[in-house]
Design a protein around this nucleic acid. Structure first.
Lengths: 125, 125
DNA sequence: ATCCGTGCAAAGAATTTGCATACAT
DNA sequence: ATGTATGCAAATTCTTTGCACGGAT
């Protein structure tokens, strides 16, 4: 996938330079400052595209709106259960080790991993 | 919260007895076999209620539809990137340790944890 | 009698899509 | 010239909500 549209490049750029893990509407509002006639549909299409190309990741969570992260290195997220803020943590962070061992005050964590299930592995194609 | 409606009890029961981590529509279809005039709004209202009461959990993920889990013990999910199937794993499972150490073939994992961020901790109330 | 939950249908929010036009190669 | 991406608006999909009625305590 090439990045030859201004829109796509600007969306990717914006995601690389923010720490707020924005949703589509927030990306739209921000990039519109540079490209005023940007449309929301274009944001959605490009987020799909960028995600499938592995240049961006959707944050796994319990949001009512998809949130995106321009940092595709392996890291953990802390998600505030009150305000929804998302913070990045390295996997080596002490807090994470504490949580995994049940020694932290955080209310909980989720560990989800991805891959092909057995059935899908068997299928040709 | 009491469980004194047939509908709520049936929804909870269904979630406790399935391993498919269903979405609201799947719960609706299943419970309707027993309570044919059940409405979808009631399913949504009860899922909210049950989640807030901690009797059920929404699965954190990248779905386009919320998925629910009647197992509220701490465990991990394996999510197939092709068909979307969700499988349960205990946190002690060897595969998880392997993934955490980068020794597994799974494409990736996410570790998200929840709690109050600093700002929200500071707020009165 | 009171409170809470329900079914139904309408409303709302988030996301996707069709189409004619415009841009990149 | 050809591919692909865009803006716009309509359409879909998922979820929430208002309201009058029914069931539980």
């Amino acid at each position: 996938m090439k990045n030859y549209s201004r829109q796509r490049a600007a969306i990717l750029e914006m995601l690389k330079n923010t720490k707020i893990h924005p949703c589509a509407a927030e990306i739209y509002a921000e990039v519109r400052k540079t490209i005023p006639n940007l449309s929301l549909g274009t944001v959605y299409r490009n987020l799909d595209e960028l995600e499938r190309a592995g240049k961006v990741q959707r944050v796994a969570g319990k949001f009512q709106t998809d949130r995106y992260d321009g940092d595709i290195t392996q890291h953990a997220h802390f998600i505030c259960t009150k305000c929804g803020k998302i913070e990045d943590y390295s996997l080596e962070h002490k807090l994470i080790a504490d949580i995994m061992r049940g020694r932290s005050k955080a209310t909980g964590f989720i560990l989800n991993y991805f891959g092909l299930c057995e059935d899908c592995c068997k299928e040709k194609q």
